[in-house]
Computed example of a mutant assay.
Amino acid sequence: MRESETLHTRVANVVSWCVSTSFSATSPRSRGSEEHEEGNLPSHIVFFAGLLILTAMSNPVITQPGAGSYGTNVQTGEWSTGLCSCCSDLLVCGLGFICPIALSCYTANKYGENACLACVPGGMAAMRTHMRLTYGIQGTICNDALMTCCCGIFETCRMAREIRIRNGET
């Protein structure tokens, strides 16, 4: 028997036990009563919890996705340009300093996200984390939040440059 079948069998047994336990109350509950016997959950909660568990277990992740063949620094785990390398892409640098919101919306759009992500608090930090993980760049979520908060425009420019480099636009 495969490991996933064993897991599915175990989950199904737990769910059926929970459902049978919730229906095994000796005294009928009055309609509208908020009191439940100790240890018994309402059957609809148990049913939906079991359904969610079975749905989550139906497609387990067997291998983790790796970084694709994106470009320059996938092997080294570093950004292609430095934080203050604005002169390497004057279009991004100029747009960033003239209208930072426009650059943030452009960056989110080029990355494949909704352009409004730039207007959501923490949106650029989340996008930086996703970008870093996608491109295989080393770092932490805390560092992502600090960089986008403290070095906002410089980090947005670096993210835009990274996308342009990886897409072969520079």
Rank of each mutant, 00 (worst) to 15 (best):
M1F: 11
E3P: 08
E3G: 12
E3D: 11
S4M: 11
E5F: 14
T6N: 07
H8R: 13
H8I: 11
T9P: 00
V14R: 04
V15N: 02
S16V: 13
W17M: 14
C18Y: 06
C18N: 06
S20E: 10
T21E: 09
S22F: 00
S24N: 13
A25D: 14
A25F: 09
R29L: 13
S30N: 07
E34Y: 05
E34S: 15
H36N: 12
H36G: 10
E37W: 07
E38N: 09
G39E: 06
N40F: 07
H44W: 07
V46A: 07
F48P: 00
A49I: 07
A49K: 02
A49N: 03
L51W: 07
L51G: 11
I53G: 08
L54I: 07
L54S: 11
A56P: 01
A56S: 10
A56E: 02
M57C: 12
M57H: 09
S58N: 08
N59H: 10
N59A: 06
P60W: 12
V61L: 07
T63Q: 08
T63S: 14
T63K: 05
G66R: 02
G66P: 00
G66D: 00
S69W: 01
Y70T: 03
G71H: 01
G71D: 10
N73W: 03
V74S: 03
Q75R: 01
Q75Y: 01
T76H: 12
W79I: 10
W79R: 09
S80R: 02
T81V: 10
G82D: 08
L83N: 06
L83A: 08
C87K: 11
C87F: 15
S88N: 13
L90P: 11
L91N: 03
L91K: 08
V92H: 01
V92C: 06
V92Q: 02
C93V: 15
G94Y: 09
L95M: 15
L95I: 15
G96P: 08
F97G: 02
F97T: 14
C99N: 13
P100M: 03
A102T: 15
C105R: 14
Y106S: 11
Y106M: 10
Y111S: 12
E113Y: 09
A115C: 06
A115F: 08
L117R: 09
P121H: 02
M124E: 00
M124V: 03
A126P: 00
M127P: 02
M127E: 04
R128K: 09
R128G: 00
R128I: 03
T129F: 00
H130I: 05
H130E: 07
M131E: 03
L133F: 00
T134I: 00
I137C: 01
G139Y: 08
T140A: 02
N143E: 13
D144V: 05
M147W: 07
M147F: 11
T148L: 07
E155V: 04
C157R: 01
R158K: 12
M159Q: 14
M159K: 04
A160Q: 05
R161M: 15
I165D: 09
R166Q: 10
N167G: 05
N167E: 15
E169V: 12
T170P: 08
